[in-house]
């Protein structure tokens, strides 16, 4: 019986592995970005992205029921980011400021072609965390309010309101 189990598991698993690897190809950059703009540390963001996929697989392989992988991965990533915050609070903006960087509207406006990622992080990190999360998910990760709601566990309406207020706050930051 044990051998039979192994045979079925082997066949089933191969298909699962292939699909999960495909998901990695399609979503790893997005999850990495999400972590990077929340944490502000590229190397740490890489670690978090890797942990996100590993923990997700661990969870799936142990029987967690998943209907849609993308929100599931974001949810895992968010939990890891929260843990990271607890370990090391408000790293990014403080870190950048310590390096002599003070982001502002004029500085970004004066940047001709490419806006450096650090500039964007600098501005986004001035947002309250509750707004930063949803603004990033909406405009960088391009998730719908419904998908964001699924990730955070809030209602669609609540998310829409937070996005609106987040943009309003961003406006105030940019106009300083």
């Amino acid at each position: 019986m044990c051998n039979n189990k192994a045979l079925i598991t082997s066949s089933y698993m191969t298909s699962m592995e292939q699909q999960f690897t495909k998901a990695y190809e399609e979503l790893s950059d997005a999850i990495f970005r999400h972590c990077y703009f929340r944490i502000g540390d590229r190397e740490k963001a890489k670690d978090l992205m890797q942990s996100t996929f590993i923990k997700s697989w661990q969870s799936i392989s142990q029987g967690t029921k998943v209907n849609n992988l993308r929100p599931f991965l974001y949810k895992v990533a968010n939990n890891l980011i929260i843990d990271e915050y607890r370990k090391k609070k408000e790293l990014s903006l403080d870190g950048l400021m310590a390096e002599g960087f003070e982001p502002g509207f004029d500085e970004i406006k004066n940047t001709e072609q490419g806006i450096d990622a650090k500039l964007v992080i600098g501005v986004i990190n001035q947002l309250d965390e509750k707004y930063r999360e949803v603004v990033l998910m909406r405009y960088v990760d391009e998730l719908s309010p419904k998908e964001i709601a699924e990730i955070t566990g809030d209602s669609d309406n609540n998310i829409s309101v937070r996005i609106h207020r987040g943009i309003k706050q961003l406006k105030e930051i940019l106009e300083k």
């Binding site: 970005r33 509207f105 490419g114 990622a117 964007v120 501005v123 986004i124 960088v140």
Partner: peptide, 19 residues
Amino acid sequence: MNQELFEKSMKQARQERLS
């Protein structure tokens, strides 16, 4: 708010990726 600047920033953010 400068809408163009906002969109440009978000676009830049979306282009960030791993090597």
